[in-house]
Computed example of a mutant assay.
Amino acid sequence: MANKNPRVDGILNYSKAKTEKSIKKVNTALNHMIKKQLKINFNSVAEEARVSKSFIYKNPELRSRIEALREQQEGLSSPKEIKRNTSENSKDVIIASLRNRVKRLEKENKEIKEQLKVQFGKIYKEI
């Protein structure tokens, strides 16, 4: 006695609701990643949204959006590159300031030695 007219409306409705919820999670994750300037690719989006990569690949709208965002990011510097460049620049500034300080201290040291010679000369004359 098989049911010749099965009721699958509930299952279909649940499936649609679950898909819509997952799409919303992916869009929220994408917005968050854009604000935080995180690297956008299928793996990172799937991880951020806690959905499977296959879900993203199967959904043409999500797939095209991620591909477009990924292409936009190719020309941009990643936060790691920016930090590395900043640290290189700051290192150069630090080196330059230290060199200036060494020159200034050497000049000061030379002046103090000259003053010391003069003082020793005065003391020697008094003896």
Rank of each mutant, 00 (worst) to 15 (best):
I82W: 00
I123Y: 05
D9C: 00
L62M: 00
L116C: 05
K18I: 11
I23L: 12
D92R: 10
Q72E: 14
E47N: 15
K4I: 13
L105M: 15
K117N: 00
R70T: 14
N59H: 15
K103V: 06
N3E: 07
E126K: 15
Q37V: 00
I112Y: 11
N5W: 12
E71Y: 06
R101S: 14
Y124C: 03
P6C: 06
S87F: 03
I11R: 03
E88K: 13
R104D: 09
E61P: 03
V51E: 04
S97P: 02
T28S: 09
S15C: 08
I66L: 00
R84K: 13
G10Y: 13
K125P: 00
D9R: 01
E71A: 05
I34V: 08
V118A: 06
S44K: 13
K21T: 09
I66V: 02
S64G: 04
P79S: 02
T86A: 10
N41P: 00
K110A: 06
M33P: 00
L116V: 02
K107S: 04
F120H: 08
E111F: 08
K107C: 00
N85V: 08
L116K: 12
L116I: 03
A96C: 06
R63W: 05
E61A: 08
R70Q: 14
T19S: 15
A68S: 15
Q72V: 07
K125Y: 07
N31S: 09
R101T: 10
S15H: 12
G10N: 10
K35V: 05
E48T: 15
V118N: 07
Q73V: 01
I23N: 12
K53R: 15
I112N: 03
K83H: 00
T19V: 11
I123S: 03
L116Y: 14
L76K: 11
E74T: 12
E126P: 01
I123N: 05
Y124A: 11
F55M: 07
S15Q: 14
Q73I: 07
I94Y: 10
K113V: 01
T28I: 03
E88D: 09
K16F: 11
E47I: 06
K4Y: 13
Q115W: 08
T86L: 09
T28R: 01
E111W: 08
K83S: 02
R104H: 07
E106D: 14
R101V: 01
E48C: 09
Q37Y: 11
R7T: 12
E81H: 09
K35F: 06
K36T: 04
K4P: 11
K107M: 04
K36Q: 06
N31R: 04
E111T: 04
V8R: 05
N13R: 09
N43A: 05
K117P: 00
R70K: 07
Q115N: 12
K117Y: 09
V118M: 05
V93G: 07
I34W: 04
V8I: 01
S64Y: 15
L76F: 11
S52P: 02
Y57L: 11
I66N: 03
A46L: 07
A96T: 11
S77D: 10
E74Q: 14
V45K: 09
S97Q: 10
A96R: 11
E81S: 06
K21I: 02
S52G: 12
T86G: 05
